[in-house]
Protein backbone atom coordinates (compact mmCIF):
# COMPACT_ATOMS: atom_id res chain seq x y z
CA UNK A 1 0.00 0.00 0.00
CA UNK A 2 1.15 3.50 -0.84
CA UNK A 3 -0.24 6.80 0.30
CA UNK A 4 -0.63 9.94 -1.80
CA UNK A 5 1.57 12.64 -0.34
CA UNK A 6 1.27 15.41 -2.89
CA UNK A 7 -0.06 15.93 -6.39
CA UNK A 8 0.57 18.97 -8.57
CA UNK A 9 0.03 19.93 -12.19
CA UNK A 10 3.36 20.50 -13.94
CA UNK A 11 2.20 20.98 -17.55
CA UNK A 12 -0.99 20.77 -19.58
CA UNK A 13 -2.84 17.67 -18.22
CA UNK A 14 0.43 16.43 -16.72
CA UNK A 15 0.69 15.68 -13.01
CA UNK A 16 3.51 14.91 -10.66
CA UNK A 17 2.39 12.55 -7.90
CA UNK A 18 4.47 11.94 -4.81
CA UNK A 19 3.70 8.77 -2.85
CA UNK A 20 5.01 7.30 0.35
CA UNK A 21 5.34 3.57 0.95
CA UNK A 22 7.63 0.58 0.71
CA UNK A 23 9.88 1.12 -2.30
CA UNK A 24 12.27 -1.77 -1.66
CA UNK A 25 11.15 -3.54 -4.85
CA UNK A 26 12.36 -0.67 -7.01
CA UNK A 27 15.97 -1.34 -7.86
CA UNK A 28 16.61 0.36 -11.20
CA UNK A 29 15.46 3.44 -13.09
CA UNK A 30 13.08 2.56 -15.92
CA UNK A 31 11.04 0.14 -13.84
CA UNK A 32 7.35 0.85 -13.49
CA UNK A 33 4.45 0.47 -11.08
CA UNK A 34 0.96 -0.79 -11.83
CA UNK A 35 -1.76 1.21 -10.14
CA UNK A 36 -5.24 0.10 -9.24
CA UNK A 37 -7.67 2.85 -10.15
CA UNK A 38 -11.05 2.79 -8.41
CA UNK A 39 -13.74 2.00 -10.99
CA UNK A 40 -11.38 0.45 -13.55
CA UNK A 41 -10.70 -3.26 -13.87
CA UNK A 42 -7.13 -3.26 -15.16
CA UNK A 43 -4.30 -1.49 -13.40
CA UNK A 44 -2.55 1.45 -15.08
CA UNK A 45 1.20 1.16 -15.71
CA UNK A 46 3.25 4.29 -14.90
CA UNK A 47 7.06 4.58 -14.90
CA UNK A 48 8.99 5.34 -11.77
CA UNK A 49 10.36 8.86 -12.20
CA UNK A 50 12.37 9.03 -8.99
CA UNK A 51 12.44 7.22 -5.67
CA UNK A 52 14.19 6.98 -2.32
CA UNK A 53 13.82 4.54 0.56
CA UNK A 54 10.32 5.65 1.52
CA UNK A 55 8.90 7.71 -1.32
CA UNK A 56 8.21 7.57 -4.97
CA UNK A 57 7.55 10.14 -7.69
CA UNK A 58 5.37 9.41 -10.72
CA UNK A 59 4.54 11.73 -13.59
CA UNK A 60 1.54 11.01 -15.74
CA UNK A 61 -0.59 12.66 -18.36
CA UNK A 62 -4.37 12.42 -18.46
CA UNK A 63 -5.16 10.34 -21.55
CA UNK A 64 -8.42 8.59 -20.74
CA UNK A 65 -10.68 7.80 -17.82
CA UNK A 66 -8.14 5.91 -15.73
CA UNK A 67 -5.55 8.66 -15.64
CA UNK A 68 -8.35 11.23 -15.21
CA UNK A 69 -9.49 9.44 -12.03
CA UNK A 70 -5.87 9.26 -10.91
CA UNK A 71 -5.44 13.01 -11.38
CA UNK A 72 -8.18 13.66 -8.81
CA UNK A 73 -6.42 11.74 -6.04
CA UNK A 74 -6.22 13.55 -2.70
CA UNK A 75 -3.39 13.77 -0.21
CA UNK A 76 -3.62 10.92 2.29
CA UNK A 77 -5.52 8.56 -0.02
CA UNK A 78 -4.34 4.94 0.07
CA UNK A 79 -3.27 3.42 -3.23
CA UNK A 80 -3.06 -0.24 -4.23
CA UNK A 81 0.14 -0.44 -6.29
CA UNK A 82 2.30 -3.27 -7.61
CA UNK A 83 5.78 -1.83 -7.46
CA UNK A 84 9.19 -2.57 -8.93
CA UNK A 85 7.91 -4.13 -12.17
CA UNK A 86 10.03 -4.65 -15.26
CA UNK A 87 13.78 -4.74 -15.78
CA UNK A 88 14.76 -1.06 -15.98
CA UNK A 89 17.79 0.59 -17.58
CA UNK A 90 21.30 -0.80 -17.26
CA UNK A 91 23.97 1.84 -16.71
CA UNK A 92 26.70 1.50 -19.33
CA UNK A 93 29.92 3.41 -18.71
CA UNK A 94 30.57 5.55 -21.78
CA UNK A 95 31.99 9.05 -22.33
CA UNK A 96 29.04 10.73 -24.05
CA UNK A 97 25.74 9.26 -22.92
CA UNK A 98 22.56 10.84 -24.24
CA UNK A 99 19.08 10.70 -22.73
CA UNK A 100 16.16 11.20 -25.11
CA UNK A 101 12.60 11.48 -23.84
CA UNK A 102 9.38 12.15 -25.69
CA UNK A 103 6.26 13.36 -23.83
CA UNK A 104 5.39 11.07 -20.95
CA UNK A 105 8.47 9.04 -21.87
CA UNK A 106 10.53 11.68 -20.07
CA UNK A 107 9.89 10.62 -16.43
CA UNK A 108 11.99 7.41 -16.23
CA UNK A 109 14.95 9.29 -17.70
CA UNK A 110 15.06 11.56 -14.67
CA UNK A 111 15.77 8.66 -12.30
CA UNK A 112 18.25 7.34 -14.83
CA UNK A 113 20.00 10.73 -15.07
CA UNK A 114 20.56 10.64 -11.31
CA UNK A 115 21.95 7.10 -11.51
CA UNK A 116 24.32 8.06 -14.35
CA UNK A 117 25.54 11.02 -12.32
CA UNK A 118 26.11 8.77 -9.30
CA UNK A 119 28.29 6.69 -11.61
CA UNK A 120 30.31 9.77 -12.55
CA UNK A 121 28.70 10.15 -15.98
CA UNK A 122 27.29 13.36 -17.37
CA UNK A 123 24.63 12.77 -20.01
CA UNK A 124 23.18 15.31 -22.39
CA UNK A 125 19.40 15.44 -22.32
CA UNK A 126 16.99 15.98 -25.21
CA UNK A 127 13.30 16.31 -24.45
CA UNK A 128 10.57 16.32 -27.09
CA UNK A 129 7.03 17.63 -26.64
CA UNK A 130 4.14 18.75 -28.84
CA UNK A 131 4.11 22.36 -27.66
CA UNK A 132 5.53 24.70 -24.97
CA UNK A 133 2.48 24.10 -22.73
CA UNK A 134 3.40 20.40 -22.57
CA UNK A 135 7.00 20.84 -21.50
CA UNK A 136 7.98 19.61 -18.04
CA UNK A 137 11.10 18.72 -16.04
CA UNK A 138 13.53 20.76 -18.19
CA UNK A 139 14.48 22.70 -15.04
CA UNK A 140 14.72 19.56 -12.94
CA UNK A 141 17.26 18.05 -15.34
CA UNK A 142 19.20 21.33 -15.36
CA UNK A 143 19.21 21.40 -11.56
CA UNK A 144 21.16 18.16 -11.76
CA UNK A 145 23.79 20.13 -13.64
CA UNK A 146 22.91 18.71 -17.04
CA UNK A 147 22.25 20.49 -20.30
CA UNK A 148 18.64 19.85 -21.38
CA UNK A 149 17.65 20.64 -24.97
CA UNK A 150 14.00 20.86 -25.93
CA UNK A 151 12.22 20.22 -29.21
CA UNK A 152 8.57 21.09 -29.77
CA UNK A 153 6.62 20.03 -32.82
CA UNK A 154 5.06 23.48 -33.21
CA UNK A 155 8.28 25.35 -32.42
CA UNK A 156 6.89 27.19 -29.37
CA UNK A 157 9.97 26.19 -27.35
CA UNK A 158 13.46 25.09 -28.37
CA UNK A 159 14.05 23.45 -31.73
CA UNK A 160 11.02 23.27 -33.99
CA UNK A 161 10.47 19.60 -34.83
CA UNK A 162 11.37 16.29 -33.24
CA UNK A 163 14.08 15.18 -30.85
CA UNK A 164 16.14 14.05 -33.82
CA UNK A 165 16.02 17.63 -35.17
CA UNK A 166 17.21 19.00 -31.81
CA UNK A 167 20.10 16.53 -31.81
CA UNK A 168 21.18 17.71 -35.28
CA UNK A 169 20.60 21.42 -34.68
CA UNK A 170 22.70 21.41 -31.51
CA UNK A 171 25.36 19.05 -32.89
CA UNK A 172 24.91 16.78 -29.89
CA UNK A 173 27.42 13.97 -29.96
CA UNK A 174 26.80 10.68 -28.26
CA UNK A 175 28.38 7.28 -27.92
CA UNK A 176 25.42 5.63 -26.19
CA UNK A 177 21.76 6.56 -25.78
CA UNK A 178 18.85 5.80 -23.48
CA UNK A 179 15.37 6.61 -24.76
CA UNK A 180 11.73 6.44 -23.80
CA UNK A 181 8.80 7.81 -25.77
CA UNK A 182 6.37 7.07 -28.55
CA UNK A 183 7.31 4.30 -30.98
CA UNK A 184 7.87 6.56 -34.02
CA UNK A 185 10.41 8.55 -31.96
CA UNK A 186 12.19 5.39 -30.86
CA UNK A 187 12.33 4.09 -34.42
CA UNK A 188 13.70 7.39 -35.72
CA UNK A 189 16.40 7.36 -33.03
CA UNK A 190 17.42 3.81 -33.86
CA UNK A 191 17.93 4.67 -37.49
CA UNK A 192 19.52 8.11 -37.01
CA UNK A 193 21.86 7.46 -34.09
CA UNK A 194 24.69 5.19 -35.09
CA UNK A 195 25.66 4.30 -31.55
CA UNK A 196 24.11 1.59 -29.48
CA UNK A 197 21.46 2.22 -26.85
CA UNK A 198 18.53 1.12 -24.70
CA UNK A 199 14.89 1.87 -25.37
CA UNK A 200 11.89 1.64 -23.11
CA UNK A 201 8.78 0.39 -24.91
CA UNK A 202 5.08 0.72 -24.24
CA UNK A 203 2.45 -1.94 -24.80
CA UNK A 204 -1.11 -2.55 -23.61
CA UNK A 205 -0.90 -4.72 -20.54
CA UNK A 206 -3.17 -7.20 -18.84
CA UNK A 207 -1.20 -7.99 -15.71
CA UNK A 208 2.11 -6.10 -15.90
CA UNK A 209 4.07 -8.92 -14.22
CA UNK A 210 4.45 -11.59 -16.89
CA UNK A 211 1.44 -13.83 -16.37
CA UNK A 212 -0.94 -13.18 -19.27
CA UNK A 213 1.26 -12.88 -22.39
CA UNK A 214 -0.73 -9.79 -23.34
CA UNK A 215 2.29 -7.60 -24.08
CA UNK A 216 4.62 -9.87 -26.08
CA UNK A 217 6.96 -8.74 -28.83
CA UNK A 218 9.31 -10.58 -31.16
CA UNK A 219 12.97 -9.75 -30.61
CA UNK A 220 16.31 -11.00 -31.88
CA UNK A 221 16.43 -13.09 -28.68
CA UNK A 222 12.99 -14.63 -29.19
CA UNK A 223 9.59 -13.70 -27.83
CA UNK A 224 9.77 -11.28 -24.89
CA UNK A 225 7.16 -9.77 -22.61
CA UNK A 226 7.41 -5.97 -22.48
CA UNK A 227 6.22 -5.95 -18.85
CA UNK A 228 8.58 -8.59 -17.50
CA UNK A 229 11.59 -8.94 -19.80
CA UNK A 230 11.32 -5.18 -20.64
CA UNK A 231 10.12 -2.49 -20.80
CA UNK A 232 13.76 -1.62 -21.57
CA UNK A 233 15.35 -3.39 -24.52
CA UNK A 234 18.74 -3.10 -26.18
CA UNK A 235 18.65 -1.48 -29.62
CA UNK A 236 20.30 -4.54 -31.19
CA UNK A 237 17.53 -6.85 -29.97
CA UNK A 238 14.63 -4.90 -31.40
CA UNK A 239 13.21 -5.96 -34.74
CA UNK A 240 11.46 -2.82 -35.91
CA UNK A 241 8.76 -3.86 -38.33
Amino acid sequence: MFEAENIRAIADKVYELKLTGDTTEIVRPGQFVNIRVIGKYLRRPISVCDWDSESLILIFKVFGEGTEILSRIKKGEKMDILSGLGNGFTVIETDKPLLVGGGVGVPPLYGLAKKLIENGLKPNVVLGFASAKDVFYKDEFESLGLKAYVATVDGTMGTKGFVTDAIKENNIECDYFYACGPNPMLKALCSELECSGQLSLEERMGCGFGACMGCSINTAKGIKRVCHDGPVFFKEDLLWK
Partner: peptide, 18 residues
Protein backbone atom coordinates in the same frame (compact mmCIF):
# COMPACT_ATOMS: atom_id res chain seq x y z
CA UNK B 1 -0.59 -6.56 -30.25
CA UNK B 2 -2.49 -4.71 -28.87
CA UNK B 3 -4.14 -7.84 -27.59
CA UNK B 4 -5.61 -6.61 -24.31
CA UNK B 5 -8.51 -4.17 -23.94
CA UNK B 6 -10.13 -2.88 -20.78
CA UNK B 7 -13.89 -3.36 -20.29
CA UNK B 8 -16.32 -2.49 -17.51
CA UNK B 9 -15.61 -5.16 -14.86
CA UNK B 10 -13.36 -7.19 -17.10
CA UNK B 11 -11.07 -7.34 -20.10
CA UNK B 12 -10.86 -8.56 -23.65
CA UNK B 13 -7.89 -10.63 -24.72
CA UNK B 14 -6.81 -11.79 -28.14
CA UNK B 15 -3.51 -13.31 -27.02
CA UNK B 16 -4.12 -16.23 -29.37
CA UNK B 17 -2.48 -19.05 -27.43
CA UNK B 18 1.11 -17.88 -27.17
Amino acid sequence: TPRIAECPSGLLNSVGLQ
